[in-house]
Amino acid sequence: MLEVRNLTKIYEGGVLALNRVSFQVPQGQFLAIIGLSGSGKSTLLRCINRLIEPTEGEVIWKGVNITTASPQELRLVRRKIGMVFQNFNLVYRSKVITNVLCGRLGYVNPAWSLINRFSQEDIQKALRQLERVGIADKAFQRADELSGGQQQRVGIARALMQDPEMILADEPVASLDPVLAHSIMRYLEQINKEDGVTILCSLHFLDLVHRYADRVIALNKGNLVFEGLPQEIDDQKFKEIYGREAERIG
């Protein structure tokens, strides 16, 4: 169970990115977060694992208050929360397998990891994850030799290495074509259904929301403007979320 209470983020310079946002996500749910660009979706996801320090409010996950956790506690929390990014955020000069093994950094002996040594167990696990996302043959290539869709699969494999109980996906398919988008979303769906991992995924296209999400929240200028089932978004609600001039395309 993830509980977000009155989460507020004001950036330096006074930009209000999140305004007292509260919602709850039961374990194992696939939650979609929608809203215009700049509505605070990325900020919300990053406030949950404190890549961005929230200004006010609390994030409580499995009984742990993440917002007040000490640096060491925070690392223990973060290692259970996988994250997938719009721009994949791979280390392009490293091998695919190294990128995937990075997901293990919160678990391994810090001293050994500094000289790039991982246990055989972890390496086998990384290869299994790559197999799961269908790119086991690319394991020893450099990450920048892969296509966009393959890179995002590496990103997912890296998140899976963390044995996550929750995955935060920040517009994971926004820089991919529709066919690839579906294949990536299906992996997330599979992880959600088979492993029972909670998924918070910000999305642009409503058809993806209808197809994959259990529940939806919508942000507009930092405010939570909608919370409910995907089917409940009718034209009226759509205009409330995206503004008067918006037209539905998907």
Binding site: R78, M83, N89, T98, L105
Partner: peptide, 27 residues
């Protein structure tokens, strides 16, 4: 981006530098 991603895995600051910063600056 990579620094953000590695930090999100629960890595320490030193690990983040070793895995996200150093590979980018070696060449």
């Amino acid at each position: 981006g990579p620094i953000e991603a590695i930090t999100a895995t629960g890595a320490t600051r030193l690990q983040t530098i070793v895995y996200a910063v150093i590979p980018q600056i070696i060449p």
